[in-house]
C-alpha cells in the first residue's frame, strides 16, 4: 500500500504528519517509523534562509512507485504500508520538505525500509534544491547525474 504525493507550497499545501498517521496506523503492523526532512540554517558554511524545491512531478511519483516495488524484490518486505510526500516550491527554515512514513510487521523491517527509501529517492527522483542565503544570493545545489 503506497501513498505518494507532491505537496505544492505555492498553493499553501504543507506536509502534515497526522495524515501519515491516519494512513499507516493499522492493526496488522507493529512498527511505524517516520522520517521527516526539514530545512536547516547552515550548509557548507553558508547561512541558509530557505530552499526552493523543483520537481518533475510525473517522474517523481513514478520513481516513488518504483522504489516501493523494488523494496519487494531487494528487501523482501512485502507486507508494508508506505507514505511519501515531497514538497515543491519554497520552504522556510525548520519546515518539512519530505516525509517518509513506513509501517511493517516488525521494527527491523521498518528501519531498513525507511533508510532504503530515502537513499533511493536521493539517487533516483528528479528533485532539485535551490538554496537561499542571508546575503540574498541563491544557488542550485550540485546533485547526482542521471545521464549514464
Amino acid at each position: 500500500m503506497l501513498h505518494a504525493k507532491i505537496i505544492d507550497t505555492s498553493k499553501n499545501e504543507s506536509i502534515e504528519i497526522s495524515k501519515a498517521e491516519n494512513f499507516l496506523n493499522q492493526s496488522k503492523f507493529g512498527a511505524i517509523i517516520y522520517f521527516v526532512g526539514t530545512v536547516r540554517d547552515l550548509n557548507e558554511n553558508k547561512s541558509v534562509t530557505g530552499i526552493t524545491y523543483d520537481t518533475k512531478d510525473s517522474m517523481v511519483i513514478r520513481s516513488f512507485e518504483e522504489i516501493y516495488e523494488d523494496a519487494d524484490n531487494k528487501l523482501s518486505i512485502k507486507d508494508k504500508a508506505v507514505f511519501i510526500e515531497h514538497v515543491k516550491g519554497y520552504v522556510g527554515l525548520k519546515e518539512k520538505s519530505i516525509i517518509i512514513g513506513v509501517a511493517c510487521k516488525h521494527r527491523d523491517q521498518a528501519f531498513v525500509l525507511s533508510r532504503y527509501i530515502i537513499e533511493e529517492i536521493k539517487k533516483r527522483s528528479p528533485i532539485w534544491k535551490k538554496e537561499h542565503y542571508k546575503n540574498e544570493e541563491s544557488e542550485w545545489l550540485k546533485g547526482i547525474s542521471l545521464n549514464n
Binding site: G37, Y53, T55, K56, S58, M59, V60, R62, H86, S97, I98, I118, I121, K122, K123, R124, S125, P126, I127, W128, K129, W140, L141, K142, G143, I144, S145, L146, N147, N148
Partner: peptide
C-alpha cells in the same frame, strides 16, 4: 534528457519528428 513519456533517452536517440523533451540536471532532493 527525457522524452514526453518520461523515459530517459541516450545521446544516440534519434529525433524523427517534432517532439518535446525535458532536461534533467543532476538531482538531489530530500
Amino acid at each position: 534528457f527525457c522524452s514526453s513519456d518520461d523515459k530517459i533517452v541516450s545521446d544516440n536517440y534519434k529525433i524523427v519528428k517534432k517532439q518535446n523533451f525535458s532536461i534533467i540536471p543532476p538531482i538531489g532532493g530530500g
